[in-house]
């Protein structure tokens, strides 16, 4: 029993930062209706930035947020403004410009391989002030770094929701996500809204990077692992749905942690795929997705 509860705790902790990573992806999709394939690479950039901050200054890994958050927001903002906007403009009549997937994959290749050229292929790990520390609640173990991750997820998700609901910019983002044309008729600068949405998505990827630093290896292709996970999570939860992303993340985290009690981790990975396929057949649009949608 204890083992199971501990596994559930671990699953929740892992699932929370999965969910946070997926949240960034789903927000971009929700507004622009495109998938950012460079999402994992942005996460990798965030990780490297945090890694070097900690290595060079010895500060708390979360101090890196001060740099990573604005850096990645601007990066995402510029990425959408420079590379994706021209495609959206050129393909105004296309429902879903798949070209964006390809362009962002190009960005993925460039970022991952630049990292490879600069930092080399080795797996790096940095000793932070919270690495390896635990917090006990009764008999149950909460690794501090992951507990902070859970809190960060909750705070970030809360802030994002608040921003979307109560700020002017947030409201225009939501309007644009409902109807591109109508929003621009209402005088919303569609592309600025897209830039901001993309910036937020990238920023969230960066935050996940900081969360991961105390307990995860950094290497140039680390993003690919998270890309595939995030894709599964957002499809599972329903593309564009914020609760879907969070719930999907926790589901994947729970599957991994509970099944790993009984089998090797590669097999738990397989279970995730099986559950994913099962959901695809039972609820193709995901747990929180719209049912009828092209």
């Amino acid at each position: 029993m204890d083992i199971i509860i501990q596994a559930l705790i671990n699953g929740l902790l892992t699932g929370s930062y999965y969910g946070l990573a997926a949240l960034g992806l789903t927000i971009v999709f929700g507004v622009i209706k495109v998938i950012n394939f460079a999402h994992g690479s942005l996460l990798m950039v965030g990780m490297f930035a945090a890694y070097w901050m900690v290595r060079l200054t010895g500060w708390h890994p979360y101090a890196a947020l001060i740099v990573v958050v604005p850096l990645l927001f601007l990066f995402g903002y510029a990425l959408q403004g420079i590379l994706i906007k021209p495609i959206l403009e050129g393909q105004r009549d296309v429902r879903e410009p798949t070209e964006v997937i390809i362009v962002t994959t190009g960005v993925w290749y460039i970022l991952d391989n630049l990292a490879l050229m600069i930092f080399g292929a080795e797996y790096r790990v940095v000793q932070t002030s919270i690495s390896g520390q635990i917090f006990m609640l009764g008999d149950y173990i909460f690794p501090k770094a992951q507990l902070y991750g859970l809190i960060t997820t909750a705070v970030t998700a809360g802030l994002v929701l608040w921003f979307l609901k109560y700020t002017r910019t947030g409201m225009s983002i939501r309007a644009a996500s409902l109807d591109r044309d109508a929003a621009s008729l209402m005088g919303i600068n569609q592309y600025r809204v897209y830039n901001i949405a993309f910036g937020i998505g990238a920023m969230i990827a960066g935050i996940v990077g900081c969360v991961l630093i105390p307990f995860y290896y950094v290497f140039p292709t680390v993003g690919v692992i998270f890309d595939v996970k995030c894709f599964i999570i957002v499809v599972l939860g329903g593309l564009g749905s914020i609760p879907g992303a969070l719930a999907g993340g926790v589901i994947v985290g729970l599957i991994e942690s509970t099944f790993s009690q009984y089998m090797t981790s590669t097999w738990t990975e397989l279970i995730v795929y099986v559950v994913f396929l099962a959901v695809l057949f039972i609820r193709p649009a995901g747990l929180f997705g719209e049912k009828r949608d092209w």
């Binding site: 999709f29 209706k33 495109v34 998938i35 429902r95 879903e96 798949t98 997937i101 595939v228 894709f231 599964i232 957002v234 499809v235 593309l239 590669t266 990975e269 397989l270 795929y273 099986v274 994913f276 396929l277 695809l280 057949f281 193709p284 649009a285 949608d293 092209w294």
Partner: peptide, 24 residues
């Protein structure tokens, strides 16, 4: 199931399926 939905579902699902086969 996937070809009835938005194209993004299909792209992501086929990709995840391919990875699933490899892991299997």
């Amino acid at each position: 199931p996937t070809l009835k939905l938005r194209g993004a579902y299909f792209a992501l699902s086929t990709m995840a399926f391919g990875e699933g086969v490899r892991v299997l």
